[in-house]
């Protein structure tokens, strides 16, 4: 069911009282986005961050988890037209945009994405926020993919794992053109969520964690969160500093950076 709430935007009001001209059309009504329900149930999840057994870097253990509640996530990425209204109304910082209703808004940082969520919450009197990494994994459904270190017991040489990871990510990256495509270009997953794992990495609420894993690699012993860096999800999980809008240049000299940074929100009930 599509619910919509009309909001009288300041686009017209502003034009009447000031000479401000917006580069994008400022619609006077905000149509609430279509939502998809991700149902409760069981799923597997690997926590987000760097994990070690002793000093050796390992994959986080897969945990079998059960969600007791459904949640709602935006079916599509936040659009340029939607973000533009937030900018016009002073709730969001301006960034590169053409204000199009057909294209997703990218070139946004974690800070931009959360500002949009705050603005939308205020406008709609509902609670909007970024999904956690775990919620994103649930919503990604059959499109979910991750790059893991794999079994290290037969080949503990750190350089070999490094090279393997580099090559895997390079292949993945080359499979898709980073040029922005219209909303819907990458289709829906098994849960009905659209454009998961295209060429946009999506901001999540989850902080980077440094964690210790038990000797047998089976469970997480402890972890520390560093929240200046957040997980962005796409073809692989990327950790990106919260004020970065364009991570194409990469966060470090080596590694395969995300193509575009965008977002979609969860609505709390």
């Amino acid at each position: 069911m599509k619910r919509s709430v009309s909001i009288f935007g300041v686009g017209i009001l502003a034009a009447a009282t000031t000479t401000a001209v917006y580069l994008w059309p400022a619609p006077d009504a905000l149509v609430l986005p279509e939502m998809t329900v991700i149902s409760a149930g069981e799923y597997d999840y690997r926590p987000a961050g760097d994990f070690r057994v002793g000093t050796r870097v390992v994959d986080a253990p897969i945990e079998h988890r059960t969600a007791r509640l459904d949640f709602e996530i935006m079916k599509h990425h936040v659009r340029q037209s939607e973000y533009s209204i937030c900018v016009a109304q002073g709730g969001c910082e301006a960034t590169l945009t053409k204000g199009s209703n057909d294209y997703p808004q990218v070139d946004v940082s974690y800070i931009d994405a959360t500002a949009y969520a705050r603005w939308l919450s205020k406008k709609t009197k509902q609670t909007w926020r970024l999904p956690t990494d775990e919620e994103w994994v649930r919503a990604a459904g059959d499109r979910f993919s991750e790059v893991i270190l794999g079994d290290i017991s037969n080949d503990p040489d750190p350089s070999k794992r490094w090279l393997l990871k580099y090559r895997t990510q390079a292949l993945e990256r080359n499979a898709i053109d980073p040029e922005l495509r219209p909303i819907g270009s990458f289709g829906a997953n098994d849960k009905g969520v659209v454009d998961i794992n295209g060429n946009i990495w999506e901001w999540t609420e989850s902080c980077f964690q440094n964690g210790k894993v038990s000797k047998d690699g089976a469970f997480l012993v402890e972890s520390t969160s560093y929240c200046g860096v957040r997980a962005a999800q796409g073809k692989h999980r990327a950790f990106i500093i919260d004020f970065v809008r364009d991570a194409k240049g990469g966060g470090c000299a080596v590694g395969t950076p995300p193509d575009n940074l965008g977002f979609r929100l969860v609505r709390e009930s």
Binding site: D157, P158, S159, K160, L163, Y166, R167, A253, V254
Partner: peptide, 11 residues
Amino acid sequence: ATAHVLVEGNW
């Protein structure tokens, strides 16, 4: 202006 060199061997 970045290139990468992938070097195989034993650490």
